[in-house]
């Protein structure tokens, strides 16, 4: 499957109620070790109730500048949440369906490693 097929899809609860759009897919470099980099696995999907696109990710990072854009983006994506991949029941064309009783998690990214 192609990533862009998933981005912008409708995020639906098990009863068919739309809760937002899939704006991103969370990955973790934590799978089986490989020669260069460990396998990169999908751990969740990020859902924004009011938009299908999130370009700069202010709603999931601690960045505050430029302040006007940061505030506007946080307001646009207020109520965004992360759903663990374990709570995804079905992926179909243009829709992602969550399991009954799925949990909404804080979408904030952990701090980036210091280089």
């Amino acid at each position: 499957m192609i990533l862009s097929d998933l981005l912008g899809s409708d995020a639906l609860e098990a009863d068919g109620r739309r809760v937002g759009g899939v704006v991103d897919v969370r990955l973790e470099i934590s799978g089986a070790p490989a020669q260069l980099l460990a396998e990169t696995v999908v751990t969740g999907v990020l859902v924004s109730p009011r938009s299908r696109v999130s370009t700069w990710g202010y709603e999931r990072r601690g960045e505050n500048g430029p302040v006007v854009i940061a505030r506007l983006q946080r307001w646009l994506h207020r109520g965004s949440f992360l759903v663990s991949w374990d709570d995804v029941e079905l992926v179909d064309e243009g829709r992602v369906v969550f399991r009954d009783g799925y949990e909404r998690h804080d979408p904030m990214l952990p701090p980036a490693p210091k280089t």
Binding site: D24, R26, L27, S30, T40, T43, S84, H105, D106, P113
Partner: peptide
């Protein structure tokens, strides 16, 4: 939204971002 109880086991990335 609750904090994700699952501690990341590796570097976390958002695919689009």
């Amino acid at each position: 939204p609750r904090p994700d109880p699952r501690a990341p086991r590796g570097r976390v990335l958002d695919a689009h971002l």
